[in-house]
């Protein structure tokens, strides 16, 4: 397995993000929920982001109130220490509930984390190694947000495409049944279905479903 240095990967992406962000006219404020028991690191991150579009809410010991806080703050990004037990609570926020998934950026002091690799590829989380250097923080967050948005868009597109495939199969199946059982030409079968859909205000896919169950029981 190929192991890439995280920073190399990030810097590579940043160049691309910077190019595209030049065209972004309005920059909205983004809320960050920072979960880190290391106060010093939290302070340095907060000061690094002064006068930027990022606004930080910091939780030092979030165990009791994390869910409430996520609910109240509705953060755009969650930044968390990789060793925090609360990491699993975040898994529930994105997996078990319908709460919108958030990009999660993780900080880790562990030098070994150099070897953490494919997580940036998963598009869900990003890891940042070592201490935070202020000039790097903003671009990292920018890139995380951009990547996350792109990843979410891809996911939605994929599920749309799958849905389209399913409905096309249904329509084809209904059309073939109509042709066979009602002795219609392909064109006429399709027209009949489309007319039914328009007359009854249903989706073509739903008409197909009804037809299939009807024609199969006859």
């Amino acid at each position: 397995m190929l192991r890439t240095n995280i920073f190399t990967a990030w810097i590579y992406r940043l160049q691309h993000t910077d190019l595209s962000s030049k065209h972004t006219a309005v920059i909205a404020e983004l809320r960050i929920l920072l979960i880190d028991e290391n106060r010093q690191r939290a302070e340095s991150l907060t000061s690094a982001l002064n006068n930027s579009r990022y606004k930080i809410s910091h939780l030092a010991s979030p165990n009791i109130s994390l869910l409430k806080q996520v609910d109240e703050i509705q953060p755009d990004i969650i930044v968390i220490d990789i060793e925090s037990p609360s990491r699993d609570i975040l898994e529930s926020v994105s997996t078990l509930s319908n709460y919108n998934p958030k990009p999660v950026v993780m900080f880790s002091a562990d030098q070994n984390t150099d070897t953490i690799n494919q997580y940036i590829e998963s598009g869900v989380s990003a890891y940042v190694v070592g201490d935070i250097q202020s000039e790097r923080v903003k671009p990292i967050l920018d890139a995380a947000v951009a990547r996350f948005k792109a990843f979410q868009k891809l996911k939605v597109e994929l599920s749309d495409t799958k849905q389209q495939l399913v409905s096309r199969n249904l329509i084809d199946q209904a059309k073939r049944l109509l042709m066979k059982k009602k002795n219609l030409s392909e064109d006429n079968a399709f027209k009949a279905m489309r007319k039914t859909a328009m007359d009854t205000g249903q989706k073509l896919e739903d008409v197909a479903k009804t037809l299939i169950s009807l024609l199969n029981t006859i």
């Binding site: 192991r3 037990p85 562990d110 070897t115 953490i116 494919q118």
Partner: peptide, 15 residues
């Protein structure tokens, strides 16, 4: 390890 998610990520990453 403090969390299952981090344990999993560390296994995936070879840590």
């Amino acid at each position: 390890q403090n969390s299952w998610a981090t344990l999993r990520d560390k296994l995936h990453a070879g840590l």
